[in-house]
Design a protein around this nucleic acid. Structure first.
Length: 287
DNA sequence: CGAGTGCCCTGACAGC
DNA sequence: TGCTGTCAGGGCACTC
């Protein structure tokens, strides 16, 4: 693989520990949710590996370069016209330079001890990968049952499942006919099942089409993501619901712009209000 | 500990 | 024309 020869980066909390990457070899490129994970290995460890059991073996875990591109981050082998934030020189690699461009500076690039995500609480508490085997209906239902938050806010926390952001949350909730502000634990089993399936469908389709470009997002090859044209709900407030024709509504849930169909996506009642309603509708009272 | 709020940062856009 | 204000959003710090 490649070796990080030099890092030119602004100093700040969003680039903590970066200097530790200098001279280390990038062993692999993996991903958890929206975080890119690049395990590193010191040059000495691959030019002259120490025998197991030596003192240096204690930190055999080594370091890990963690990259989150935020909203507007772009990783590219070509120099950006503006907003260059970081340059990774990859000695002997092809390409030999990676540019990190980030107009709004929401991204972060840092080095942590491998697997030690205490500095990244969201990553530390990250739920299962949405397209992986660990993301089962049962596990999803159990996670949702633990939260009284609006289901959309809970999805955005990354705890019930990894990788669902604002756009795909709206899309999956629309597809599953779940109201974004329904308390997570109030969802019926059929709704949980539908939402589980919708998250998988939406993310699989979005990956297939290389994502959604609203503004700056580009693939590593500089192309826009084509999922934009597939959006049913996100950004379509005022437009007719593709299912029933009712105008879609925009609101704010969990501090984020939210789009839903007021007819297809009925709000699930909390346990307490559902109980009240049941009691009220029961002739002669509950007892 | 879970839930809610404010903040970061800058480009795009509306309004005057 | 050019200024000011508002909005967008992923994750984190802080408060209750």
């Amino acid at each position: 693989m490649l070796a990080v020869e030099r890092v030119d980066a602004p100093i700040g909390p969003k680039t903590a520990g970066l200097e530790r990457a200098i001279g280390q070899r990038i062993e692999a490129v993996t991903r958890r949710g929206k975080f890119l994970l690049l395990p590193l290995r010191p040059a000495s460890a691959w030019t002259s590996p120490l025998p197991a059991g030596t003192a240096a073996d204690a930190d055999a875990g080594g370091d890990e370069l963690v990259v989150h591109l935020g909203m507007t981050g772009v990783l590219s082998p070509r120099p950006p016209v503006a907003h260059l934030r970081l340059l990774l020189r990859l000695d002997g690699g092809r390409p030999d330079v990676l540019y990190v461009q980030d107009a709004r500076r929401f991204g972060r690039v840092l080095v942590v001890p491998r697997g030690d995500y205490r500095a990244l609480p969201t990553l530390a508490a990250m739920g299962p990968e949405p397209l992986g085997d660990a993301f089962t209906v049962t596990a999803f239902a159990a996670a949702l049952a633990r939260s009284a938050q609006p289901v959309k806010a809970f999805l955005l926390s990354q705890r019930p499942v990894a990788g669902v952001g604002n756009i795909y949350a709206d899309e999956a909730l629309w597809r599953a006919r779940v109201h974004p502000a329904s308390p997570a634990r109030a969802l019926s089993r059929p709704k949980v099942r539908a939402l589980h399936a919708a998250i998988r469908e939406v993310l699989a389709a979005a990956v297939e089409l290389q994502g959604t470009t609203l503004y700056d997002y580009r693939t590593v090859n500089g192309e826009v993501g084509a999922y934009l044209e597939k959006l049913d709900a996100y950004g379509h407030d005022g437009d007719p619901c593709p299912r029933c024709g009712t105008p879609l509504v925009r609101s704010v849930v969990g501090q984020r712009g939210t789009h839903h169909c007021p007819r297809c996506q009925r709000r699930a009642r909390s346990d307490a209000s559902a109980r009240r309603r049941r009691d009220r509708s029961m002739p002669g009272g509950a007892r």
